[in-house]
Design a binder for these strands. Structure first.
Lengths: 335, 335
DNA sequence: ATGAAAGCGCTAACAG
DNA sequence: CTGTTAGCGCTTTCAT
């Protein structure tokens, strides 16, 4: 491995001159500059960022920690954030926590985090207590879950309100027995699904309808396969179901497949609503009606919040919620 | 920021003892150990990985560089790889190159790469010449594209053969005018799309059908929106089209939407084939017929190849190709 | 069982 | 315009 000292020796200058040339700092004679550059090219030298970062005390990089790489929502978020941080001269790297409490705790390992100038954490498995116990010194912004300790910056989406509006839209379209597919968190924590289910309940109650337990379709995983099977079973159990609110678009896609399996027309016989407005949403089933959680808004708010926290560690923590919006397409009937 | 020296002072020991306790190395008395551990907890100390990595000369981390975070295929790949490397005690971080030649070149910045023990690069925009010019010292394994310089390890999928089999399946199902949606790379480089298109051509020729230029539907981006519009236009231009081979499932989903817009029955009037076998493939349009490119195989081969390269930098480069397999579902007719 | 010294590769600060 | 000195926080090596 060739070091800066090797380059310096080969070019007949000091390491400082090499360093200065490479960073365009200090005053370096044009001739010397060229010689150093030539030597760098000849030797194939590249700075050791680990050493540079250690010395400078920063990395010019931020991390996004997501529950799973394998989810369209996070892919989209990561893409947006990469662009946003890029504009600020910061590199974005993505790490996976595994969507479990243990995974998140491990991913939040102080040591790991300290290698970055800032961290965006998309919480899923951790409880409020876990978050409270977190002793992180790296600038950190929490994403996604509804509740977060006041001392953290937090950017969330309007899960409950978006879900309420979505279900209200189903009601307006004429559905009376609306199942919620996704169910609540087993631990009763304020997770995305729990919040969205609360919105479902609120909408039903607001319309004078009963939020019966039988209408709650629990899922082990928020994936199409599980949803497809579960919806088929739910329909078989309760043929009166005439509306489906899926807690995510992925779940909605599975639900649509399950309804198709059962030979039920959408939206004629059963209306379907998703949540997330994934890019493919407009292309499935003629256009999946869903809730736009404000992904662009969230990415910008998160990037701003982290930049702010990085420049001022003592700034007052901010809790921001993106506005959600119902996107009516073809799996629901016009009101 | 609390350092190891701070902890040592507070615990009344030397930094070496702290280091030894933290890494479970060396012989440390139980009493001392407890005292150090207590001090670590009290001070909230966490090792500085940047310093540790500099000293140790490794990071216990590998990077996966993908063209875009925002693509289901790469999300899936990243998930699989994270698990595979996790088993080997290596941390996986994902970076985005931006799917352009410039982006990839920037992402391949020697300096960045050297911060990892190994790198997996999913090539898209770079030409063979670019790859050849690459002077990387970090253990590197190339992924995805068909051609790669012999000196690199390379794991690819059977793009041409998979596409050939897919189109042969369309022919067997009775299609005679089969459009390929995705088109070739403008630069004529051996990209995924070009390879898959070559497979389309081979299948047609093998069946005695003409691979007319009019059957090639070019796309600016391999996304549903673009595909939907392009397919609508193609069908309007040539109503005889009775089969569609989409170069990716994402494109296929858009193509299906376009065919639905045009009121054409799938698979009765037009058969549709995708490529990738994304998880949602089985849930769209009753089940999208597609090509399984062997994602699991690829992830394992890539992880093995990189581990091997990391342990032996001089090992003979290997070029591996995953077997592809047609998955016939409901958007094609049985032969 | 514990500690002192040296140095990983780089850059800030200052000297010339 | 260029070079010297010091040290970022840690681990390796060797001594005690």
């Amino acid at each position: 491995m060739v070091t800066m000292a090797d380059v310096a020796r080969a070019a007949g200058v000091s390491v400082m001159t090499v360093s200065n040339v490479l960073r365009d700092r200090g005053r370096v004679g044009e001739e010397t500059r060229q010689r150093v550059l030539r030597t760098v090219a000849e030797t194939g030298y590249a700075v050791n960022l680990t050493a540079r970062n250690l010395r400078r005390g920063r990395a010019d990089a931020v991390a996004l920690i997501v529950p799973s790489f394998d989810h369209a929502y996070f892919g989209d978020l990561a893409s947006r954030l990469a662009a946003l941080f890029g504009e600020r001269g910061l590199h974005l790297v993505v790490e996976q926590s595994g969507a479990s409490r243990e995974g998140e705790l491990a991913a939040l390992d102080q040591a790991r985090l300290r290698a970055y100038d800032g961290v965006l954490l998309s919480v899923v498995g951790m409880t409020a207590a876990d978050l409270n116990a977190l002793a992180v010194t790296t600038p950190l912004v929490l994403l996604g879950e509804q509740e977060a300790p006041a001392r953290f910056d937090h950017v969330s989406m309007a899960n409950a309100e978006g879900a309420r509006a979505a279900v209200a839209h189903l009601v307006a379209g004429g559905s009376r027995r609306i199942a919620v597919v996704g169910g609540e968190d087993p631990r009763g924590a304020a997770t995305m699904a729990t919040e969205r289910m609360a919105g479902w309940r609120a909408a039903l109650e607001g319309a004078g309808l009963a939020a019966e337990r039988g209408l709650v379709v629990r899922l082990e995983a928020f994936e199409p396969d599980a949803a497809r099977v579960a919806v088929r079973e739910a329909i078989a159990r309760d043929p009166e179901i005439d509306g489906v609110f899926a807690v995510t678009d992925q779940v909605a896609i599975g639900a649509l497949a399950g309804l198709a399996d059962a030979g039920l027309d959408v939206p004629g016989r059963v209306q379907v609503m998703g949540f997330d407005d994934l890019r493919i949403a407009r292309h499935v089933a003629g256009g999946l009606s869903t809730v736009d959680p404000g992904a662009a808004w969230i990415a910008e708010a998160a990037a701003d919040a982290l930049a702010r926290r990085m420049s001022d560690p003592d700034a007052e923590p901010r809790h921001l919620t993106a506005p959600a919006r119902v996107v009516a397409r073809r799996t629901t009937r016009p009101a």
